[in-house]
């Protein structure tokens, strides 16, 4: 079963980070990705540009409407995700606990609705 970890955090928390802080942050995530790969459960991941850079689009009656900004303004924003392949929710919880984002933000676990086919 594929689970997606949606990583939410308050971006103002990153405001004061130095170059070294970012480098350390990258290392921490690199180690987590390495652990996921070593366990053979890694599917994909991405780290997203800040929410202010989002482009939001909808198509109604053949007309496309484009907005500059996020779908919803929230304090904690989606900053990245992991897709992992695991047997059940307990395994997903155990891996989400190890996700660095759990320590400063929130990790939302969502199971796939597409099955394993």
């Amino acid at each position: 079963m594929k689970y997606t970890f949606l990583l939410y955090s308050d971006p103002t928390g990153f405001a004061g980070l130095t170059e070294e802080d970012w480098a350390r942050e990258k290392e921490v995530y690199g180690a987590y990705i390495g652990a996921l790969k070593a366990a053979g459960i890694f599917v994909s991941t991405d780290w997203l540009q800040p929410v202010a850079t989002a482009t939001t689009l909808s198509t109604r009656d053949g007309k496309t409407r484009i907005e500059d900004g996020p779908f919803a303004e929230t304090v904690e924003t989606l900053g990245g995700y992991f897709v992992v392949d695991l047997p059940d929710l307990d395994a997903a919880i155990a891996w989400a606990e190890k996700c660095p984002a759990a320590q400063y933000g929130k990790v939302e676990i969502r199971a796939t609705a597409m099955g394993d086919g």
């Binding site: 079963m1 047997p87 059940d88 929710l89 307990d90 997903a92 199971a111 609705a113």
Partner: peptide, 14 residues
């Protein structure tokens, strides 16, 4: 069902 919560008696600390 949606989250595949496990149908088993867990082990150890869990």
């Amino acid at each position: 069902k949606a989250n595949a919560m496990p149908f088993r008696v867990p082990e150890g600390a869990l």
